[in-house]
Computed example of a mutant assay.
Amino acid sequence: MSEWTAFTDDDAARWISVPAPDDDKYSRGVLGAITGSTSYPGAAVLSVQAAHRTGVGMVRYLGPRHPSELVLARRPEVVTADGRVQAWVIGSGIDEQALKPKRRARIIRALESGDPAVIDAGVLGLFAEHRLTAGGGGRTKSILTPHFSELVALLGRTGIDTDVDAVKQAPADWAVRAAEASGSVVLLKGNTTYIADPDGARLTVSGAPSWLATAGSGDVLGGVLGALVATHRDAIDADAGALAPLAATGALLHARAAELASAGGPIAALDVADALGSAIKSWLNSASH
């Protein structure tokens, strides 16, 4: 098994795309977001806000009326019409059991599109089930972002039984098992984040302030990851191995933004999303010296 490597700020700075003079909103990446729900509308706002603050060119938000209204109130530049995207973020703030047929079908279409995707929360199980039902095997272009209990449920859908206590005892090992079972990069969230690639890359990210353990922080992370994947679509198409360092970059950026927002005190998820631009700026400034 490959050894685990701590991912650094210098590593992450290499994966930040700075727009060139001739770039436009399309060449900078278009992210499709299927996040939030009537029950959890804030997840839509948090994921979309984070994606914009990470530097994506455009976000297409596809969701129910109420979260769509909240997203547009916060970010009027968001497009709520369907269309071409470079990547997806799917699942934050979605309860699989409450999915209506039309939205479930929309998610399945996104999963079948061949576009890279960040899969979070309530769609993790649906992703695993659809992959098995469709006879999927081999490598995907997806990043899965479970916490411990979600990893247990995800593995259960692939026929692997475990429990939260077992995952807590050996999170690195279970992240690898999930990556191999799903054919996807798995980002297992925790005090130390483990990023496992099914083809061998093993990366860790640590150092986030404990104040980051707050409602909605995972929704922010999903938006960050979605933006990074959308802006690096060409690199992913050329080599799916790009997904692991992109996932690690997203986790480290999330942590650095939390540090800036916190300054040693309590924070809320939207504070983290709003600090992402400053965190990126600090990396770019360091890289230029």
Rank of each mutant, 00 (worst) to 15 (best):
T5R: 15
D9T: 08
R14Q: 10
W15D: 08
V18C: 14
V18A: 12
V18H: 07
D22G: 00
Y26F: 13
Y26K: 14
S27H: 07
V30G: 01
V30M: 02
I34Q: 13
I34V: 09
T35D: 07
G36F: 10
S39H: 13
S47M: 02
G57D: 00
G57R: 12
V59C: 13
R60P: 00
P64H: 08
P67C: 15
D82M: 12
R104W: 07
A110M: 10
S113K: 15
L124W: 06
L124D: 05
L126G: 11
L126Q: 09
H130F: 06
S142H: 15
S142Y: 04
L144D: 04
T145I: 03
T145G: 07
F148N: 13
V152F: 10
D161L: 11
A178D: 00
A178P: 06
A179C: 09
G183R: 06
G183Y: 05
T193G: 13
I195W: 07
A208T: 02
D219G: 13
V220E: 06
L221V: 02
L225K: 14
G226D: 08
R233E: 09
D234I: 03
A235E: 11
A240P: 09
A244H: 07
L246K: 12
A247Y: 01
A247D: 03
A248F: 08
A248H: 06
L252A: 01
L253S: 08
H254D: 08
H254P: 04
A257Y: 06
A258H: 04
E259S: 15
E259I: 01
A261V: 04
A261D: 06
S262H: 02
A263C: 06
A275W: 03
G277C: 10
W283K: 00
